[in-house]
Design a protein around this nucleic acid. Structure first.
Lengths: 162, 162
DNA sequence: GAGTTATGTCAGCATAGTTGACATTATGCA
DNA sequence: TGCATAATGTCAACTATGCTGACATAACTC
């Protein structure tokens, strides 16, 4: 199998065993990555979908619904269910566009920013600890591999958020 | 805020902006990570839950239901629903334990191994390409950061799978 | 004025998670 | 021997979050 690809000793990191380790690392790390925010969201009666919306509205204040749909990769019906509760609960404000009045520009209210901060703090704290223990070189490699793992069109979105 | 922590230039990788980039990289990369297997699973009428069960049964042939529950971190009711269909469809075999007859030892059938191979191939292919483009140093950093991001108890499970 | 775009909404469905309750069988200990 | 416990399976009900399809409204573009 692909063991035969590892004829050069510099390719030992591409063995089946190493790749399986990588797959499992992604699985377990993602669990840790979402664990802390999930606990907070639970207290407010929200889920991961709400977190994602809040995160990207905070990241791109005034973004439109269509933009958000492209980033999150879900249907408008799915996103709308989430956005509606966030607007009703006073965490997100939906403002009619000035340039194009069909568009809705989404921003976090003060209450929304408060929750975003709370969620971001725990997720950032875990990331910071991991980064600190791993060191700058490892962090650079981490980011490089993750970028290479993205779909091409998603990579574009990721770079757009820089 | 934490910008003030970055007084040493060696700590620039711990700025809020860098940490947010890390969070978004995880989000987008995980989407890519699951995209290919998801397409295959769809054709068979299975979901990600089936993939996870199949993956870890393949990884630890003869593992018990309780072991699998600990690894996957779901309730037995949730896992059972998935395992039942896999056994009914002839992908997984559930054998009464010899040492302890209360336990069920789970293994993949030939049919199960065939699907596992198919799923593993696409997921591994993406990982291999990402690893190859990123290079061995980056891969090492990638794995280090992911391990540091796991919950302590999950890290133990991850190391156990080595 | 016609066609298209951005958004919202209703209804229905699927997956996969949850809790709680209960049953069966097997183990292990007093 | 018998009782508590453990491993597993199952029923029912609920939730969150995805999906498709259909339709409505308003606004923009040509």
């Amino acid at each position: 199998m692909s063991e035969s690809r590892a004829r050069g000793d510099s390719l030992l990191f591409l063995t089946d065993a190493q790749l399986r380790r990588g797959i499992e690392a992604m699985f377990f790390a993602y669990r840790g990555f979402t664990a802390d925010p999930d606990r907070i969201l639970d207290q407010y009666g929200y889920g991961r979908a709400h977190h994602r919306a809040i995160h990207f509205i905070n990241r791109w204040p005034g973004t439109t619904v269509n933009n958000l749909l492209a980033i999150l990769g879900v249907t408008k019906q799915s996103l709308n269910r989430v956005l509606r509760t966030l607007v009703e609960d006073g965490l997100v404000e939906s403002a009619v566009g000035t340039r194009d009045r069909r568009e809705r520009h989404l921003t976090l209210t003060e209450k929304g920013r408060a929750l975003e901060t709370e969620l971001n703090e725990v997720q950032t704290a875990r990331m910071r600890d991991a980064f600190r223990r791993a060191g700058p070189e490892a962090v650079s490699g981490f980011r490089t591999v993750l970028e290479e793992m993205m779909d091409e069109d998603l990579k574009h979105l990721f770079e757009g958020t820089a």
